[in-house]
Design a binder for these strands. Structure first.
Length: 420
DNA sequence: TCTGGGGTCCTAGGACCC
DNA sequence: TCTGGGGTCCTAGGACCC
């Protein structure tokens, strides 16, 4: 059996944990730039606040219901996620951390446990971190996902649901809508509804060849998973990323090339740090630049460009040179730009780099420099104490984060003081 | 009139996930 | 005035190889 542990309203729960007076209040967390709603407490969902809704269209509503609003604080959420995942690892040795707020637990080597009791205990153990979770247990990942949804929807008090018999599986399949299935998104929902499918049970009854033809091999795997035949492997070792993207909308529209170049330099530095963290080098970089396409009255512009690097690298200095060159090639004056991004592609392990015959770069020296830079910056609360000149300037690009909470768990001066 | 049988690599586009 | 930021996988078609 496989368990799926999913944190309830994760970002909202993280924020609320350190402000207990918000315990039964509506809480929302906004995306970067305080743009859209990306997490909601149950109370916020009950008022009718939709996922992804733009905050600026709901100001009156948020005020009238006294909704607590937070900017995203990924440092806090990452740290809370670590605590949750470590707790799970203490109760199961095969854990796949699937996302910041979800994990699959492999229970095959504990066949004699009582699954529901186990889940209830596990849930209580995680609650000690302050984060509430729901748990679904089933023979496949896709069914565990459905069981988890079911627990959230119909068994809120216990927060746990186990699919250990055909009858229980059928019950969940019958009361799950087609788009509740893991792997069925908006397009497949539309297609399946047009063919008369309503519930997960309807899909299970469909002929395999039909599913294969209309939903590719991915759909075929999904179908088998719903029938209790595992087709999606556990992935317990973290594979290195194949691409690394850093892209942000600016806090305000920018036209000036100097401002945009400064933003790009900072995003490049972040991407390069991520690259080194997973011990990879990039062979190709892509830089893209775009205007705000919600402002249809403004002239629109989008361009992206790929640059091949002569020798794969993870050096911020070198990547900055190519990123700057890329911007020179795609930048056009007089547009109101909203967003720029860099994608590092064709990543390879940094100990398997083929050097170039005419390479002029002193790579060992660059590597020592980057190692020293990372070490210094790591030891200062993650603040970038040492950086490249191109990264500095007037920071016109920086994000709006008007409701940012403290880093309660990662920055010493932000730790709460409690008066008794 | 009749024209083989295997393969790989690359790219764009489409689908999905959190 | 204000609308997020990351990822993965699959397929079809074209170009090429022997």
């Amino acid at each position: 059996m496989i368990a799926l542990v999913d944190c309830n309203n994760f970002y909202a729960s993280c924020e609320r944990l350190f402000q207990p007076h918000l315990a039964d209040k509506p809480v929302v967390v906004l995306s970067n730039n305080d743009g859209c709603v990306i997490a909601r407490s149950d109370e916020a969902k009950a008022i009718g606040i939709e996922m992804g809704a733009p905050a600026f269209l709901m100001e009156e509503m948020l005020r009238s219901h006294d909704v607590a609003i937070f900017s995203s604080n990924y440092t806090l959420y990452g740290s809370m996620s670590d605590r949750v995942m470590k707790t799970l690892q203490m109760h199961c040795h095969t854990v796949e951390v699937y996302s910041i707020d979800e994990a699959f637990l492999y229970l095959y080597d504990m066949p004699h446990i009582h699954y529901e009791d186990y889940a209830i205990q596990l849930r209580a153990a995680v609650k000690a971190t302050g984060i509430p979770v729901s748990i679904g247990i089933a023979p496949t990942k896709t069914l565990a996902k459905l069981a988890n949804r079911y627990a959230k929807q119909y068994k809120k008090a216990v927060g746990v649901h186990v699919l250990d018999s055909p009858a229980k599986i059928n019950e969940v399949l019958s009361c799950s809508a087609i788009d509740d299935i893991w792997g069925v998104g908006p397009q497949y929902t539309k297609m399946l509804q047009q063919h008369g499918f309503k519930t997960a049970m309807d899909l299970v009854r469909a002929p395999e060849e039909w599913v294969r033809k209309n939903m590719t091999v991915v759909g075929q795997r999904m179908l088998n998973e719903l029938k209790g035949i595992p087709c999606i492997e556990m992935e317990t070792v973290i594979a290195p990323r194949k691409n690394i993207t850093v892209a942000r909308s600016f806090g305000q529209l920018l036209s000036d090339k100097t401002d945009i170049a400064e933003a790009l330099a900072n995003y490049t530095a972040i991407a390069a740090r991520k690259l080194r963290k997973q011990h990879s080098c990039a062979r190709v970089i892509n830089v893209f630049l775009q205007t705000n396409n919600f402002r249809q009255k403004d002239p629109q512009y989008y361009r992206s460009i790929n640059l091949q690097l002569p020798v794969p690298t993870s050096s911020t200095a070198e990547l900055l040179q190519y990123a700057t060159k890329a911007l020179d090639l795609i930048y056009r004056p007089h547009y109101n730009f909203k967003k720029i991004g860099i994608i590092l592609m064709e990543l390879a392990p940094d100990n398997q780099v083929q050097s170039g015959l005419f390479d002029q770069v002193n790579r060992p020296r660059d590597q020592r420099l980057m190692t020293a830079l990372d070490a210094i910056n790591r030891s200062w609360d993650g603040k970038e104490l040492v950086k490249f000149g191109r990264q500095s300037g007037n920071r016109r690009w920086k994000l709006r984060q008007e409701k940012l909470s403290p880093c309660y768990t990662t920055r010493l001066q932000d730790v709460l003081t409690i008066n008794i």
